[in-house]
Nucleic acid binder design. Structure first.
Length: 254
DNA sequence: ATGCCTCAGCTCCTGAGA
């Protein structure tokens, strides 16, 4: 079974690239973030022609997430039960016996800001919910755009970006607290090249200079850990004309 | 350097992203 996550930064703009990518990488599940479109504009037909069913949770202008799958998605849930939120950030479903959660974590903008407080509250809400989900679904994947780096290895300039957004102790504490529920950073289960990132700023030739962050993650539960055989970041789409600023992350399970 | 790109929208500037 192959799963992937990709923040596409507008599905309207990126749909051709998503279809190309799926043709080359026929994963079983693809979680998308930052659709930036409403459900009525979601390209169900084009994806169906490519062999994918889709569950979407759209929103105008910002946010919006979806789960694409070859097999039917069961027990679909939108956002975090028990956490009131007017933004479309989370969609989950059971696919091929695996509970899959696709999420677009809040950006947080700047430490100390209102948006930062919202991010920390959101993270707490997610954690309280995922704790219960894990009890009900031992085989669980939580993947998406986390907007948090684990540590310096995920940051192109750790000294210069110390304590800035995505790199603060508060955010990293919440990420470790998620891990402590019984999850694993699938990417670090395998040998990876140094300076591996999943996002590069559009500005200042960020990608060309590999000035990036690893903020897109796939966390897998204890029960799935022994089944993981590979986890990679695919930088290929970042080389496209008009790319998303994020690259897809792929997980292979036995 | 409160900028640099990119995207959406009550679109020719602004807010947000990260």
């Amino acid at each position: 079974m192959k799963l992937a996550t990709w923040n596409v930064n507008s599905l309207t703009v990126r749909l051709p690239q998503v279809l190309d990518w799926l043709a080359t990488n026929p994963v079983d599940v693809l979680a998308l973030q930052e659709l930036k479109l409403t459900d009525d504009k979601f390209p169900f037909d084009a994806l169906a022609r490519a062999g994918y069913l889709a569950q979407c949770f759209g929103q105008k202008t910002y946010n919006g997430v979806a789960l694409l799958s070859r097999a039917p998605a069961l027990d679909v849930v939108r956002n975090i039960p028990g956490f009131a939120d007017d933004m479309a950030r989370v969609i989950s479903a059971t696919i091929d016996g695996v509970r899959v959660i696709g999420a677009y974590f809040p950006n947080g903008q700047e430490p100390g800001s209102e948006k930062f407080d919202y991010k920390l509250n959101w993270l707490k809400g997610l954690r309280d919910w995922v704790r219960e989900e894990l009890k009900a679904h031992p085989k669980l994947v939580l993947m998406g755009d986390y907007n948090i780096t684990f540590d310096d290895a995920d940051v192109w300039d750790p000294a210069g970006l110390k304590d800035t957004i995505h790199c603060t102790d508060e955010e990293r504490y919440e990420l470790r607290a998620l891990i402590a529920l019984g999850l694993h950073d699938a990417y670090r289960l395998f040998k990876q090249a140094d300076k591996s990132y999943s996002w590069w700023d559009y500005r200042d030739f960020g990608f060309r200079r590999n000035r990036g962050l690893r903020i897109d993650h796939i966390l897998i539960s204890d029960a799935l850990k022994p089944m993981a055989t590979a986890c990679v970041i695919d930088k290929t789409p970042r080389k496209n004309e008009r790319p998303s600023d994020h690259a897809p992350v792929l997980l292979e399970l036995l």
